[in-house]
Simulated assay, not measured.
Amino acid sequence: MPRVQLPVVTPKRRAWNKGRIIGQKRPLLPKQVWALRARLELAGNLRDLAIFNVAIDSKLRGCDLVRLSVTDLVKDDCVRERVSVIQGKTKRPVQFELTKNTRDTVSAWVRSPEMIGCPFMFPSRFHDRPHISTRQYGRLVRDWVISIGLEPSGYGTHSLRRTKAAEIYRKTGNLRAVQLLLGHTKVDSTVRYLGVELEDALSISEQIDI
């Protein structure tokens, strides 16, 4: 009998997002911010508290947050109230404010023994890296949200970037202000980032009672 040549079957690669929840990560609610902040304070974890507070105030992408230098935030032994940095993605400057609570945390952190001689705000504990990586930062955020009982698949480093921006928009409705604070070049990007169209539609719907 002639041999039948079967077609070669190429095994399918597992999809990178199989079993994962993808899409935009949720911002933290104010009560969740304070719960997480309180846990870090009680644990005496000064480094993580500084990272968390700066992340919330700065609204920076993770890649820009981990690269912050001490001189970006501190001048003449005083923590700056307003900071300007160049974004790695857009190469454009973005400004942000540091609240008093964050300034106090940063001041205590840069004066700690762990920070002696460190040029970066958040140095890595691995000798071959000058500062923490975005992957390390992501693991920290995962541990933080788990510690207050949140589902980690719904949150990530962008949750911290979005948290204050989402709250500002909720209270003011000022898209232009949020665009400037996030460092977006186009307001359309801010609209998509905040999911404004959906939020507005739901708000309008909630006010109609039939």
Rank of each mutant, 00 (worst) to 15 (best):
G138I: 00
T157H: 05
N45Y: 07
W109P: 05
C78K: 15
P123W: 08
G44W: 01
S107R: 12
R39I: 08
T102G: 04
R80M: 11
T71I: 12
T157C: 15
V145I: 10
L42E: 15
T163Q: 02
Q136S: 13
G156T: 09
P119G: 08
T163F: 07
L40M: 11
R162W: 05
V85T: 03
G88P: 02
H158N: 08
S147I: 09
R111Q: 13
D48K: 03
D64W: 00
R103D: 00
V145M: 09
K164A: 10
S153A: 15
F96Q: 01
T105Q: 04
R92P: 00
C63S: 15
V83H: 03
P123A: 06
K59V: 12
R39T: 10
Q87V: 07
R162H: 07
K75R: 15
S84M: 15
V66D: 00
V85I: 13
T105E: 00
K75A: 14
R47L: 03
D57F: 03
V83C: 09
A108G: 01
E81I: 07
R47D: 01
G149N: 03
L36W: 09
K100D: 15
G138Q: 10
I168W: 07
V106D: 03
T71H: 13
T71Q: 13
Q95T: 13
Y137S: 00
D143T: 13
S69V: 10
H127Y: 13
V141H: 00
W109R: 05
R82H: 14
I148R: 04
L98W: 01
T134H: 00
V83M: 06
S84Y: 12
H158P: 09
N45G: 09
I86F: 11
D72A: 06
R47K: 14
F120K: 11
A55Y: 03
L49E: 04
L49R: 09
Q87L: 13
I132R: 05
P152H: 01
L60I: 05
I168G: 03
R162L: 10
F122L: 08
P113G: 03
D48C: 03
T99F: 12
R39Y: 04
R142A: 11
L68V: 08
T163N: 01
V66G: 03
T134N: 04
L160K: 08
P130H: 03
R162E: 03
V94M: 05
N53Y: 06
R139P: 01
V83T: 05
N45A: 12
